[in-house]
Structures are given as structure tokens and as C-alpha cells.
């Protein structure tokens, strides 16, 4: 499972990392998703947390990319 983090839409709510800390990391500097604009691989076993993190984003900034 891969997730793309929209560079423009991410606005620093921080919900993704709250629900899926092993998937989504926040920048120490500003608290926005550290991988903004990139596509990341969800570690095995973290799919459920990732789904919750994706769902909780008020911006819908996280998009599952079919691979």
C-alpha cells in the first residue's frame, strides 16, 4: 500500500501522525507532514492505522495510490 501526500492540501493538522505514527511523520520544524508532495510505502501491518490517519485528515490530503 502506497500513500501520496498532497503538497498543497496538507495544512499541518497533524491528525495522520496521531493515528498512524509509524506511517506518517511530521516535520519537527513546522508540524506539517514531513513527506509532503511525496508517495510513501506503508509498512506491513500498519495498513489499518494508515487508513485511520487518511480518514482523519480534514483536507483529504492523503491519497492511496494503487500499485
Amino acid at each position: 500500500m502506497k500513500v501520496h501526500i498532497d503538497e498543497i492540501k496538507c495544512s499541518g493538522h497533524g491528525r495522520c501522525a496521531k493515528y498512524a505514527p509509524n506511517v506518517f511523520k511530521l516535520s519537527d520544524d513546522d508540524g506539517y507532514n514531513a513527506d509532503r508532495g511525496q508517495t510513501i510505502e506503508v509498512p506491513a501491518g500498519e495498513e489499518e492505522n494508515a487508513q485511520l490517519g487518511i480518514k482523519s485528515c480534514p483536507e483529504r490530503a492523503l491519497i492511496i495510490v494503487e500499485d
Partner: peptide, 20 residues
Amino acid sequence: REGIPHSTFGVGPHRCIGSN
């Protein structure tokens, strides 16, 4: 409830800067 995308801190680039 888990993972509810509420908008109390706003949405978009003007997201409440004090939310944290």
C-alpha cells in the same frame, strides 16, 4: 469516535495556527 475529520480548527491554508 476515531478519525473524524472535523473542521473546528478550520480547513485549508488558514488552518488555526494555534491548534497544537
